[in-house]
Each structure stands twice: as C-alpha cells, then as structure tokens.
C-alpha cells in the first residue's frame, strides 16, 4: 500500500524541476574542448542524472516505507538529519519567502528607483543614490518588521541576509550594533539593560580583535553618514 504524502511528491518534483532547469541551462556552455572529447557539460549532466535517479529512488522508498524510509545504521538516530518543526504550514512558507525576498529586492531596487526618479548622481558614494538607498532600506525594513511580527523564525532567517545585503552600502561598523540587538530580540531577549550592556561589549570585542589587533579591513560602506561613521571608528582604533 502506498504511504506517499503530498510533501513527498512536492520534494521529488522540486528535484526533478531543478534537474530540468540545470540540464536546459547546460546547453549554454556545451562547448567542445579540443583535448577532452566529453566537453564542459558532461560532468554536470552526469551529476544531474544521479540527482534524478536519487530523487526517484527516494520517492519509491517513501512509497514503500513512508516517513520511516530506509536509513543507514548510523544516521538513523542522529539529530542532525531531521529537525521536525511546527513551522510547516503554507502560510508560514509564503511569509518566510516574502521575508527572504526583501534583501534581494534591496539589491536591485535603488538603481531602478533612481532611474525612475531621474536621479543623476548614481555613481557609488554620490549623494543622490545614497539618499535613494537609505529610503529603499527604510521602506523595506518597515515591510520586514510588518512580516516578522508573526513569523519569528522567518525573521531570524531573513535578518542576516538583509544585514549582508546592506553591508556594501551602510558598512559593517554602523550595522553591527543594530544587527546584534536585532538578533538578541528575535532570540527572545527582552531585558533592555542586559542588551545595553552586551551589545557594546560584543561590538567592542570584535573591533578590538579584528580592527585594532589584526588590521582586518571591514566594509565601511559608501553611503553617508554611514561611511563617515565607519571611517571614524577605523581612525579611532588604528
């Protein structure tokens, strides 16, 4: 009797669609190499074939054994493999997807918005694009807060990517304190005095070790006033 669930079929469909996409794209670089008759596409296509076989094998296995499908002796009990979670409703996935999309929207939005608003000084570091970037970041952050209100886990997943997407423009030095406090709040910390003590301690420790001791050049950003703040911290420490 079949023990398949919709989730199993979605999982296999995902892998097979991925295989199809990458297989079609492999024609973009399917060029001959004079000294190697298999060309550049043979190796990735062989991997794609193995992915397809494994995905179908997984489906057949789940059809026979359900969620308790076959496992090797060692992995069976080990916790790393399967973290079951309550956060698996369709609504949760949609809201998480929106949260995760926000940083990627930021990566393309300022340039598009600047061209729509006919901003002329669009070279990195110039004031016009800088203002547009700050406005875009603020609007997207507000949307992030709106969605993170009901989806803590999605918010935790998205915040570091948002932080990374802003690094180039706003710099590590200005963003790190906000990031530290943000993660602490999302992890459930509510005591303001504790956060007020821990944040400067962690920030100071990082700055002293990497900037003062090891002279690691962290991104200062290219949007004022974040750029000025980053440079001020570096000058202060070095």
């Amino acid at each position: 009797m079949s023990k398949l669930r919709t989730g199993h079929i979605v999982e296999v469909a995902f892998w097979l669609l991925l295989v199809l996409f990458f297989f079609v794209y492999s024609f973009e670089f399917n060029q001959d190499i004079e000294i190697y008759k298999y060309g550049a596409a043979m190796w990735p296509r062989a991997i794609l074939l193995l992915i397809a076989i494994a995905a179908i094998g997984q489906l057949l296995d789940q059809r026979r054994n359900g969620d308790r499908s076959s496992s090797n002796t060692m992995a069976k009990a080990h916790e790393d493999s399967a973290q079951e979670s309550d956060n698996s409703s369709l609504g949760w996935y949609v809201s998480t997807f929106i949260l995760l999309a926000i940083p990627f929207i930021y990566m393309v939005l300022p340039e598009k918005a600047a061209s729509l608003m006919s901003v002329t000084d669009i070279a990195p570091g110039e004031a016009g694009i800088g203002r547009v970037k700050i406005i875009c970041a603020a609007v997207l952050f507000a949307i992030y807060l709106m969605f993170s209100w009901r989806n803590h886990v999605g918010a935790i997943l998205a915040l570091p990517i948002f932080f990374a997407a802003l690094l180039e423009d706003m710099g590590f030095y200005a963003l790190a304190p906000v990031f530290i406090v943000g993660i602490m709040i999302l992890m459930g910390e509510r005591r303001i005095n504790r956060m007020a003590m821990i944040m400067p301690f962690l920030y100071g420790l990082l700055m002293l070790f990497f900037v003062k001791l090891l002279y690691v050049g962290l991104p200062t950003g290219n949007v004022r006033p974040f750029y000025d703040f980053g440079n001020w911290v570096v000058t202060l420490l070095q």
Partner: peptide
C-alpha cells in the same frame, strides 16, 4: 551513507555539493 536521514538523501546531499 553517513549523516542524512536516508541513503537517498545522503546521496542527494553529496550531489548538491558536487553541483
């Protein structure tokens, strides 16, 4: 055969790395 919930998922994990 090490680390994943099933052999197939272990194999798929390695293939993701290879890709």
């Amino acid at each position: 055969s090490v680390g994943a919930k099933t052999f197939w998922k272990g194999w798929l994990s390695i293939m993701i790395g290879l890709m």
